[in-house]
Write a protein that binds this DNA or RNA. Structure first.
Length: 106
DNA sequence: AAACTGACTAATA
DNA sequence: CTATTAGCCAGTT
């Protein structure tokens, strides 16, 4: 994979997300100096090893929802991990990015 | 090589 | 709110 270097940048940004906060693919891409490469961020997450220390669960899509993957199963784990950190989901399964988004808005 | 696919986003209608 | 279009790019078939 030729984009391995980009993965490292992406992971480095994800590691900076504080506990109890979430960020979006697009934001991560921009912070990693790869504006417009949101899709690549998704790829980087998909390629993480199962024993990673990267807090991948703190990355959600622009709507504040957990993205669906091709192989389901991980979404439930992700939501559980986030709730355990104090992230609240509304009745529609969405996170209020104004309250839990990172970097902190406002 | 060409076509497809996918943990995405933003703009527009 | 949904649908469509376009931009992005690595990995797979």
């Amino acid at each position: 994979m030729t984009g391995a270097g980009n993965y490292l940048r992406i992971w480095a940004v994800v590691r900076r997300i504080p506990r109890g906060r979430v960020s979006t693919y697009g934001r991560i891409a921009t912070l990693a100096r790869l504006p417009g490469h949101a899709r690549q961020v998704g790829y980087a997450m998909h390629g993480l090893p199962s024993d990673t220390s990267v807090p991948w669960q703190r990355v959600v899509n622009a709507k504040g929802e957990i993205s669906r993957r091709a192989r389901s199963g991980g979404e439930v784990t992700q939501r559980l991990l986030l709730e355990r950190e104090g992230v609240r989901f509304n009745s529609r399964g969405r996170i209020d990015l104004e309250a839990f988004g990172w970097p902190k808005a406002r």
